[in-house]
């Protein structure tokens, strides 16, 4: 469960203060497939970064299963991200020198999991995203869609509580985007994995159970289908 209580985020841009988010209150339950939508600059990515602990709010509290991540020291926060949050980025952001298998395995290595356990889960996840035949390929040998599927597998590898996906389909062609969404949706349905998207993509919005609309840093609409 994610509790967001009255958070605001203000950036200083030169002498001007930019209010990226204002008084956001939100609760996201386990297993939700949520899309945060809104125009560019509305504050979607800022909200996602705050939930993921990549940035800290100017005001307010974010609790993830009773842990107030806004008060965690930096190293503890990194460790919290490692064990509780999965990230999928718009431009895949795989480690270019590692193979698909190694990219997926990487987080489990950071978690100091046993080799057998790592191997088993890596293969299982790459199968789940349909890349069991590409395990030895490096990112530059794969298409954008394949890379993003590896990124999803990597995000799941650490068995996180939820996955934050920032515009995951923005750089993908239509069929790759559909394919990726299907995979994520299945994972949500089967494993009750919580997904939170920041997106403009109508295909994502179409699959989402909950849609939160943000504009000018404020939630203007929040509904379940």
């Amino acid at each position: 469960m994610i509790y967001i209580q009255n958070i605001s985020k203000t950036y200083q841009s030169g002498i001007i203060q930019v209010k990226a988010l204002q008084n956001i209150n939100l609760t996201i339950k386990k297993g939700e497939f949520t899309a945060i939508v809104g125009p560019s600059g509305s504050g979607k990515t800022t909200l996602l970064n705050l939930i993921g602990g990549l940035d800290s709010p100017s005001h307010g509290i974010i609790k993830i299963d009773q842990t107030d991540i806004t008060s965690l020291p930096e190293n503890d926060l990194i460790d919290f991200r490692l064990h509780h949050i999965g990230f999928v980025f718009q431009s895949y952001n795989l480690i270019p020198v590692l193979t698909a298998k190694e990219n997926v395995e990487f987080l489990m290595l950071l978690q100091k999991k046993e080799e057998d356990q790592r191997n088993e889960r890596t293969i299982q996840l790459l199968k789940a995203v349909g890349l069991e035949n590409q395990i030895h390929k490096k990112p530059n040998e794969m298409s954008g869609g394949q890379q993003q599927r590896v990124a999803v597998a990597r995000a799941l590898a650490s068995k996180p509580d939820f996955i934050l996906a920032d515009e995951p389909t923005a750089n993908l062609d239509s069929s790759s985007a559909e394919n990726l969404l299907d995979i994520m949706f299945k994972l949500n349905q089967k494993e009750k994995m919580t997904f939170i998207f920041s997106t403009h993509d109508s295909r994502v919005i179409a699959k989402a159970q909950r849609i939160i609309t943000i504009d000018d840093g404020q939630i203007i609409n929040d509904y379940y289908r």
Partner: peptide, 16 residues
């Protein structure tokens, strides 16, 4: 920068 930012995001600590 981007890659290092990603590594920090996904949980690779600063010592590493």
């Amino acid at each position: 920068k981007k890659e290092l930012g990603m590594l920090l995001s996904i949980g690779m600590n600063k010592n590493k």
